[in-house]
Design a protein around this nucleic acid. Structure first.
Lengths: 237, 237
DNA sequence: CCGGATCCGAATCGATACTG
DNA sequence: CAGTATCGATTCGGATCCGG
């Protein structure tokens, strides 16, 4: 059961033994968004074999990264332990690092709600959020819908069910999202080029990587300043 | 050749596809210390199969993380690209994170020069280095010998050959290490408990996890303040 | 539907041997 | 020194199945 040892007494090695197996860090990524049920994880990681998911969850529990929490009369969820949650800055930094090397999407690549939520967190600039007025967006990518609220307090992201209102706050993103968003827009994977600064919002609309559905289109400028990944700037708290 | 895709369009996923394969991040760890030849890497990773090492090096090159540099009349070395070097804060943070979960060493665990060098970097506290007077240590762990110089300018670590003087600056640690160290001491793996603050230097000597070979034993206090990993503090620049 | 366990072929890894 | 080749041992992936 103990994963094959690398035979070294070293912190990096220990870390890699804990979260270096295939799929493990992606499970952590999704749990960073919130507690998830077995089935949620399976949906969020469409290509993971079910036996691998179950094996990883056991290993992550043994490693003290994840714990299993029964919900009274409601099934059970997996969640990160405090120790597991310490991985957050590392996962976000890895997301920024990997962002630089992302090409265009493969034909059957998907964008999941959790991966997009984490991606927005990796790109979030607190400095821009404090310097600019608050903003309230609704972002559509594929059939994922996110309510993204930026203020001087920070970033709040809630996952919205295609049908109507945000998902159960206990499981999904965060708490209640009152009122209507100021800007609703839809994007394809090309939104990556907006985040990287390769495209301005105007160019993004021109090239149809982005489309305003409703609200104040000028807010796109603010969005582009708030969510931005510059090459070479991997680390942040 | 493209590693099996996780099927998601996401920065974290891309990062894991680049450096998530078995052994890959440990190769990066060693290259963080300096350029290394194939054989150096093999020695620094005693349990890596040679075909895996060669496969990983190819993949890391394809991913733009590592490059192969011929040395005139001297063989060739692998080194991190600038993009690969951006992993440094991530690897150090992972080292700190894994440190918390390190138990006692397995019977056949080894401590290599590069892993110990990186471990000291993960534990290094710049705040302590600037607050305290400079210090110059020689640390022995197993048959690894490191010259560790701390000053307000930062940390310098050079690997010393068992025979005598530090290794070739071009390949090994850093440049010339003039004069003699102020303190020479030897440690076993239990030095982990000094770094974690679980043991004071005096207790460490009592319990024989540490032994002063030469020089000013009171410098051990300064060492313990300069190299320290507190639980929960994973991230630093 | 939820939360897995089981089975099996395909791909990868690990150990050793061998080569320019 | 810098790898390739080979081959058995593991792990992964895909599908199916099962108890609540």
């Amino acid at each position: 059961m103990a994963s094959r040892s690398y035979g070294q007494y070293c912190g990096v090695t220990t870390a890699v033994e804990l979260i270096g197996e295939r799929w493990a860090l992606l499970i952590v990524r999704d749990l960073l968004v919130g507690p998830r049920r077995y089935t949620d994880l399976k949906q969020g990681l469409p290509k993971i074999p079910t036996n691998i998911l179950s094996t990883r969850l056991k290993e992550l529990q043994e490693g003290g990264v994840v714990r299993r929490v029964p919900l009274l009369h409601c099934g059970l969820v997996y969640e990160l332990t405090p120790y597991g949650r310490e991985l957050e800055p590392i996962v976000l930094a890895l997301g920024r690092w990997g962002f630089a090397q992302m090409g265009d999407p493969q034909p059957d690549d998907v964008v999941t709600a959790d991966s997009l939520t984490v991606a927005l967190r990796t790109a979030f600039r607190m400095d821009a959020a404090t310097a600019l007025p608050p903003a309230d967006y609704e972002l559509h990518v594929g059939d994922v819908v996110l309510r993204v609220q930026v203020s001087a307090d920070g970033l709040r992201i809630a996952q919205v069910q295609p049908a109507g209102r945000p998902v159960d706050p206990k499981l999904g993103g965060q708490a209640s999202t009152a009122g209507d968003p100021e800007l609703v827009f839809a994007a394809g994977p090309g939104i990556r080029r907006l985040i990287s600064g390769e495209l301005t919002p105007a160019e993004a609309i021109d090239q149809e990587v982005l489309a305003v559905v409703a609200g104040d289109a000028t807010l796109l400028e603010r969005f582009a300043q708030t969510f931005r990944i510059e090459p070479g700037v991997v680390l942040a708290a």
